[in-house]
């Protein structure tokens, strides 16, 4: 190796080291920005000396009082169970519905398929809240509002879930069609093709769909608030905890909100991080396929 190329390599590696250092600094700063709010919320949930907003992060007096109050003196356990129940039921039913919808639109060819997809595209461009007033009235007739909001919310989430077929359809589009055709020639019905050939290959998308379906009810705020209509027994965690940060409640409930937030975030985050791989596959595929 000539002296010149060696010099060149040396220069390259110093330059490289320098740019890597810059990147490390940026990444560390970013990590701090991303983590600080979450660290703050955890720290403040242990604050005992006062319940409102304060100008410092580290509690002067530590304790589990907020968590004890949360479970003994508030409706939080009820909200938590409501949300958990909704999330589990919705995750199961929505996964089935989305799979049916996306499988059909991806792999079966029938009259009106394009029309159906355009119809849903157009429907999807209307803001979802528009349906809120009508659904409220319908659910009221079915006695599924206020303290009975839980089944009502499940119905609302599940009923429109077929619209969210895009990511899953994108996944099915990538499975070679020759697999189906071979099985059809061997005399399998379309049902058999679906559950014997396609489903076993679909584990990633099933997990992705179930995961997103499970997570959505934890954050839903709009429908949940409208349908529970200020009745504490029918609220989910999002609506309940939101009501603690209003002007007249925040000074007594701020640290309780932090504690509640921590209790909600921990299981959802752990689940998410455990299944991260599938989520990444889903969103990447979804973005590429559109």
């Amino acid at each position: 190796m000539s002296a010149k190329t060696e010099q060149h390599h040396m220069r390259m590696s110093t330059k490289n080291r320098l740019s890597n250092t810059v990147i490390y600094i940026i990444l560390i700063l970013m990590s701090l920005i991303w983590l600080i709010p979450f660290i703050c919320i955890v720290l403040q949930s242990f604050r005992v000396e006062s319940t409102g907003q304060v100008g410092y992060v580290i509690p002067k007096q530590w304790g589990l009082d907020n968590y004890v109050t949360l479970f003994t003196q508030t409706s939080f356990p009820k909200w938590y169970l409501n949300t958990l129940f909704i999330a589990v039921v919705v995750a199961v039913i929505q996964t089935v519905i989305v799979l049916c919808m996306s499988y059909t639109l991806s792999r079966l060819r029938f009259k009106g398929r394009k029309l159906l997809m355009n119809f849903m595209l157009v429907l999807g461009m209307f803001p979802g809240f528009l349906t809120m007033i009508v659904l409220y009235t319908v659910l009221k007739d079915l006695n599924m509002i206020m303290e009975n909001a839980v089944p009502g919310l499940i119905l609302v989430y599940v009923a429109s879930s077929g619209m969210g077929y895009y990511v899953s359809k994108g996944f099915f589009d990538t499975i070679p069609r020759s697999l189906d055709e071979a099985a059809r020639i061997d005399g399998a019905t379309r049902l058999q093709v679906f559950y014997k050939i396609i489903l076993p290959l679909s584990k990633p998308i099933v997990i992705y769909t179930a995961l997103t379906a499970f997570m959505a009810p934890w954050g839903d705020f709009v429908f949940a608030r409208y349908i529970s209509n200020n009745n504490s027994a029918g609220m989910n965690v999002a609506v309940g905890l939101w009501s603690w940060l209003q002007r007249d409640t925040i000074s007594q409930r701020y640290t309780l909100f932090c504690a509640g937030g921590v209790i909600v975030a921990i299981p959802v985050t752990l689940l998410f991080i455990a299944l991260q791989k599938y989520y990444v596959e889903g969103v990447t595929g979804g973005a590429v396929k559109g």
Partner: peptide, 10 residues
């Protein structure tokens, strides 16, 4: 992962 109503409200 963390529900938006927690992170954004906070």
């Amino acid at each position: 992962a963390i529900p938006q109503f927690i992170s954004l409200l906070y």
